[in-house]
Amino acid sequence: MKHYDLPLSPENAAMLRCGDIVEISGFVFTARDAAHKRMCEALNSGEPLPFDLNGAAIYYCGPTPACDGEIIGSCGPTTSSRMDDYAPALMEAGVKVMLGKGKRSPAVNEAIKRNGAIYFAAIGGAGALYKHKIKSCELVAYPELGCEAVRKLYIENVELLVATDSYGNTCLK
């Protein structure tokens, strides 16, 4: 299995093809419904964003709270299509990688192609497995959103499927 590090270089992004299973390490930012709404509102009004979007990877995830001594609780992907209304704007603003589960809208796949981005599918319902792959977790923004707050995670050697490649090809039903 090939290994890639985040942030993904344009050369590496161009090498990935939908249907590839690869191993990924690096920093990702968690964001789901509520955080996406806030980030897009900030983009529209010119307010500062919670993190630098340029080349960033967003993980659609709302983890369970960490118990004593843990870095994070269970943290599998949530349904990506709920973020479809927001994803193109975030890609135009610099986001290069998305991690989630399930198919994307044609508009999102088009935006992925336009921006040379990648959409990786993680396994829905495998939150305990991903918990072990998270080596650090830092609360970055919107703490009042609870599990929907933005967190910066370091993920190590996570197996992911290239679901939409930078050419806009997708392999999800």
């Binding site: 949530t78 396994i123 319902g125 305990a128 499927l161």
Partner: peptide, 28 residues
Amino acid sequence: PLCKWALGQIVQNDELAARENAYACQDC
């Protein structure tokens, strides 16, 4: 092969969750 991989990850997850008392899915 892709689905076999996915199913393997799910089985691994469910066994790990039971063994370690971890939530099988973050969406409880």
